[in-house]
Design a protein around this nucleic acid. Structure first.
Length: 490
RNA sequence: CGGGCUGUGGCGCAGUUUGGUAGCGCGCUACCUUGGGGUGGUAGAGGUCGCGGGUUCGAGUCCCGCCAGUCCGACCA
């Protein structure tokens, strides 16, 4: 179905609340572009697929970093930094890895006016530079495990780009670990996947499905790849983070070897795991609505915006009280007082709703007289008149309730949008109306996987840890090895 | 990478068919007014028409190339 190129946006008609963004139920893609630009998250840069991450958007990334970094440290990891440039010969050493990545590698071939003897790849991911370093650092089993993470950007020459979801350069973190045993490596791989699941659920309020990738969907060079998969507001899936057990493949390619207790030379077992600013895209597409962003309190740069109402002496009294409330609430929340004189209250309501602020506090002359204020929550739009007395507790509780509600809503959406399928026709039906996940049996044959992809555009998102009963492959009817989730993915 | 569409003050658009030297709404600036869901008024500022070439006396408008955005497809961790 070809959509109109541009859905007309509402003009300045009276009564139109949202006048800057497309209706997500009509054109979700346009809505997304409108939100990321109009809510001040990004601006487009001059190079294809590159964006400027503006302060309000970057703030979301800073919270992502803080929340994840805390979890990485708690699981024994340290941060380090490896170079942006990778010698071509390094990249070539792991065969599957090369085949997977070279189509989208950007190369540096000159420095100043000097033509380089060996081309340098701008990292598309850092296995090829970290592996050789680990090789130097590891001699003995006593040097293991190595548990390192780095925050950086990587570059991939993508053909079709979208802000956050697929960009030429993107911010992410990549953890790289080396272990003495296969068991340890596998534990680490699953431990970090669980960290991602916990982060999405408890910080982003996004319900995700953890599981294993199929052979054809796994990371180039990996033994096994795991992912957490999320469901966007339009029914398409998004791979929200991945964790790879690299087995001994990279250890062999980069000669990461150690002497074990018996004096035998062994290859280490390595893992890598990553989460990118794509998480911000998920945040937008899971919670956003027709008025724009909806941010869970834990991620919101501003959790409570105070809008004072009133003019003259009355307005001054309101503002004075608003400042007092701001100071009080500052103890329990991130509060912003919008006391700009040049905008009306109604304008500010729309302004902050577009930016997803979880709770708005309105304070006017009436409230001053009654020692009350009005709280409006962004997720449901509900208004409540509450006493100023004890406001700290009221607000803290409300923020908690918004956070919880968003997670509940996200979880319910995944449950409601996951439907059992017995045939390829049923998969087709679900993905064609972009209704979410199709859950069904899979025999494990890549041919069946490919057939579904060709006929419906859907891919196997993962093989969920939480297996459903599935006797037969929904594609070929042969006995199923496991139940999987199909969906159209970003 | 293939096909479609788009690019005109900060934003949204008209003007392109039929070439004649750029316009509207919002926003912005100043002042007044208003303020519980995008107040109203008066006076202003702001544009190498994405970039480069070509045709022409003359190009926003016609032709070619490129860049960027976007949709569909292919590809993709």
């Amino acid at each position: 179905m070809r959509r109109p190129r541009r859905v007309p946006k509402a003009g300045k008609e009276k009564g139109a609340f949202v006048q800057e963004i497309a209706d997500p139920s009509v054109d979700f893609a346009q809505w997304y572009v409108d939100v990321v630009t109009k809510a001040d998250l990004i601006d487009y840069a001059p190079v294809r697929g590159c964006v400027v991450f503006k302060p309000y958007g970057y703030n979301l990334w800073e919270r992502t970093q803080e929340a994840l970094d805390r979890r990485f440290k708690a699981t024994g990891h340290q941060n380090a930094y490896f170079p942006l440039l990778i010698p071509e010969s390094f990249l070539l050493r792991e065969q599957q890895h090369v085949a997977g990545f070279t189509p989208e590698v950007l190369w540096v071939s000159t420095g100043g006016d000097e033509i380089l003897q060996e081309r340098l790849a701008i990292r598309p991911t850092s296995e090829a530079i970290i592996g050789p370093m680990y090789s130097r650092w590891v001699q003995s089993y006593r040097d293991l495990p190595i548990l390192i993470n780095q925050w950086c950007s990587v570059v991939r020459w993508e053909k079709a780009t979208r802000p956050f979801l697929r960009t030429t350069e993107f911010l992410w973190q990549e953890g790289h670990t080396a272990h003495a045993t296969t068991e340890e490596a596998q534990e680490e791989t699953l431990r970090m996947l669980e960290v991602y699941r916990d982060f999405y659920e408890n910080e982003m309020a996004i319900w995700v499905v953890p599981g294993q990738k199929t052979e054809s969907e796994k990371f180039p060079g990996a033994l096994r790849t795991y992912s957490v998969e999320a469901l966007m507001g339009d029914g398409r899936a998004l791979q929200a983070a991945t964790s790879h057990n690299l087995g001994q493949n990279f250890a062999q390619a980069y000669e990461i070897r150690y002497l074990d207790r018996e004096g035998q030379l062994q290859f280490a077992h390595t893992t890598s795991w990553g989460l990118s600013w794509r998480a911000i895209g998920a945040l937008i597409m899971v919670h956003g609505d027709a008025r724009g962003l909806v941010l869970p309190p834990k991620m919101a740069p501003t959790q409570v915006v105070i809008v004072p109402i009133g003019t003259g002496a009355e307005g001054e009294a309101v503002r004075t009280r608003a400042r007092q409330l701001k100071d009080r609430l500052g103890e329990v929340a991130r509060v912003h007082l919008d006391d700009r004189d040049e905008y009306t209250p109604g304008y500010k309501f729309n302004h902050w709703e577009l930016r997803g602020v979880p709770v708005r506090l309105e304070l006017g002359p009436r409230d001053l007289r009654e020692q009350q204020c009005v709280l409006v929550r962004r997720d449901t739009g509900e208004k409540a008149v509450v006493p100023q007395d004890g406001l700290e507790l009221t607000v803290r509780a409300l923020l908690g309730e918004v956070q919880d509600n968003l997670l509940r809503r996200s979880r319910q959406k995944v449950l409601d949008s996951t439907r059992e399928v017995q045939s390829i026709a049923e998969i087709e039906a679900i993905v064609s109306e972009r209704a979410g996940f199709a859950a069904g049996g899979f025999c494990g044959d890549a041919a069946c996987e490919m057939k579904v992809h060709e006929e419906t555009g859907a891919t196997i998102r993962n093989i969920p840890f939480a297996q459903r009963p599935a006797e037969r492959c929904a594609v070929c009817g042969q006995p199923a090895k496991h139940s999987v989730l199909w969906a159209r993915a970003y």
